[in-house]
């Protein structure tokens, strides 16, 4: 296997980890206004992700850094091309990030309402935009001969991408709701369960719509072939099973299934892309691939060594942090503000 392929896989892993982990904390942020009726409940809901969200977001920062290091042309074309979309994403991530820290540091109700609103929008916008971005990767965007993006912001907002955006928005919401059923108690848990059941239907329908739409809009199916393997199939089956598991009150399994569905859909899109990273809608030859956009073998080799040492280490201590905070958070627990 060549180094380019290894790095394509590693970036797939980083985005998969990001969507799996930050997916549920986006979901919790989106559900915040629907889950909680008073300030104490809101704080409880936030505390379910309090120790984790920042570490989850580093998966994105690392994915961005890895793209820059391993595939600079991909990073440069994507970030300069999807300019306004990324600006929106940055605004959302800034407001959301400080909101977690700032909301409880002052007890004026308007102050708290503003930062809670920031947590909601700051979670919903990226949850939507990531779907939009990934749909455009695979559908293709106008990229010219010299690897420069030749479209505008509104090229990205095509119906296909919007369906994918709504699908990711609703799946992350579902993932967050199921996470909350695992991390809360009493009436909050009941509310989370009922929200999860409500969100499941639109999330599933939108995902199916996205799959059908992909048949028309992309070459995903031709690339995956008649036997796409277990990953794409399981991403669908896992999502379908969630409602059954929720009915049986098997929250843990349901969470595993929303997680698998998110992870496997991400992997499926990367499988459909391979070896391309950004498809040109103007001319297939102008697409960015792992070969025409990669760094030198020397750089990729150094990065491979670094990743081989530190990725497992990160997984160990991040995993340990989840174990430390494995208990449910209730409105009666001592809440860290």
């Amino acid at each position: 296997m060549d180094l380019q392929t290894i790095w394509f896989i590693l970036i797939t892993v980083l985005f998969t980890g990001f969507f799996f982990l930050e997916g549920f904390d986006f979901g919790v942020g989106i559900l915040l206004p629907f889950m909680s009726r008073d300030d104490r409940e809101r704080r409880t809901v936030i505390n379910t992700i309090g120790p984790f969200w920042d570490g989850n977001e580093v998966w994105l920062i690392t994915a961005g850094g890895a793209m820059f290091a391993a595939f600079p042309e991909w990073y440069a074309t994507l970030f300069s091309g999807f300019y306004i979309a990324l600006l929106l994403m940055l605004v959302a991530l800034i407001l959301r990030g400080v909101a977690f820290e700032f909301r409880s540091k002052h007890d004026n109700p308007a102050w708290r309402a503003f930062w809670d609103w920031s947590i909601f929008t700051g979670s919903a916008i990226p949850a939507l935009l990531w779907g939009v971005a990934f749909a455009n990767f695979i559908r293709g965007v106008p990229i010219d001969q010299s690897m420069n993006y030749a479209g505008g912001f509104f090229n990205l907002l095509n119906p296909y991408a919007l369906v994918c955006g709504l699908a990711s928005l609703s799946i992350f919401t579902l993932h967050g709701a199921v996470f909350l059923t695992l991390k809360t108690t009493g009436s909050l848990q009941k509310r989370a369960m009922s929200l999860a059941k409500k969100v499941w239907a639109p999330a599933t329908l939108l995902s199916l719509a996205f799959m059908i739409y992909s048949f028309i809009e992309t070459d995903l199916y031709q690339r995956l072939g008649v036997n796409p393997g277990i990953i794409p199939v399981f991403s669908v089956l896992a999502l379908l099973s969630v409602i059954v598991l929720l009915q049986k009150n098997a929250s843990g399994w349901a969470f595993a299934m929303t997680g698998i569905s998110i992870a496997f859909s991400t992997i499926t899109i990367f499988m459909g892309l391979f070896p391309r990273v950004l498809v040109s809608s103007l001319n297939p030859d102008w697409s960015l691939t792992i070969y025409n956009s990669s760094s030198s073998d020397y750089t990729l080799g150094i990065m491979t060594i670094v990743a081989a040492i530190f990725v497992p280490l990160v997984l160990v201590y991040q995993g340990w942090s989840y174990w430390v905070f494995r208990q449910r958070v209730s409105t009666d627990s001592e809440l860290e503000y």
Binding site: T62, F68, F71, P72
Partner: peptide, 13 residues
């Protein structure tokens, strides 16, 4: 990118 991206990625990791 071949050079500058590397410390950035390592910084994150």
């Amino acid at each position: 990118g071949d050079i500058f991206g590397v410390p950035l990625a390592i910084e994150a990791l």
